[in-house]
Amino acid sequence: MNTLVLTVLTLGVLGILLAVILYFVAQKFHVEEDPRIDDVEKMLPGANCGGCGFAGCRAMADALVTRDNISSLFCPVAGGETMKSIAGFLGKTAPDKEPMVATMRCGGTCQKRPKVNHYDGTLNCAVVNTFYVGESACAFGCIGYGDCVDACKFGALHLNTETGLVEVDPDKCTACGACVKACPKGLFELRKKWPKNRAIYVACRSKNRGAVVMKACKAGCIGCGKCAKVCAFDAITIDNNLAYIDPDKCKLCRKCYNECPTGAIRLENMEPLAKEPKVANTPASDVVAK
């Protein structure tokens, strides 16, 4: 009994003594930190994804508070609204950025891009990329082992086992850019996010000549240039046998989609134009999606 009392007493006294010492040490070595950093950190999404270029949300909050000009800082996860409210809270001007979404630019499904060899090694795109081009004959297409799916912290990517391609869920995507870095073939691009998740883009990265593309994949861009000719907004450029739709110039008129002979241009959450578009009685402004 005596031992018990003694132990409790000793430890209790020791605890109080150390607490008092710690209190004074904390007072003495207190680091003056802007309290706003904590507030800003709370306003940020707390995903610690690194999409802003900083190590985590705390580092971003620190930069937002301490830098005078925050126009170059942007949290892709939080988006423009949150950035505006943070800027308002800090009394600074917010960067004006449109919401973006990751886009996977390969349309070579298992059906359209037949396999020409069998791979039974490590199922990792980066590993495959060190050996050879992949199981299909296309050197630019999706390898399909999902390095990007592993890299995505928001569950926005998933591998469709039927098509063998990775698909993006635009509602979950925060445009942090992790997939852009993870893909060894450079298939991802952060593009402007249209309302209702509409999108139009060239789902191909093949820089090969048309004949070579056709042999490897039925959904590839052959660089014929028909889309560029029909585009009224100069949004489409052909470089190295590959068409590219500039999201800043594109008005979603979908003329190029109808022209594309291989179906390399992809529409999302939109109906294609009728085969005979009534151009005569449709003013250009109505064609533009709102």
Binding site: G121, T122, N124, A126, V127, T130
Partner: peptide, 12 residues
């Protein structure tokens, strides 16, 4: 374990 496959990526 495909050790070399990953080491090669690291090396590159």
């Amino acid at each position: 374990i495909p050790l070399l496959d990953y080491i090669r990526i690291g090396k590159q």
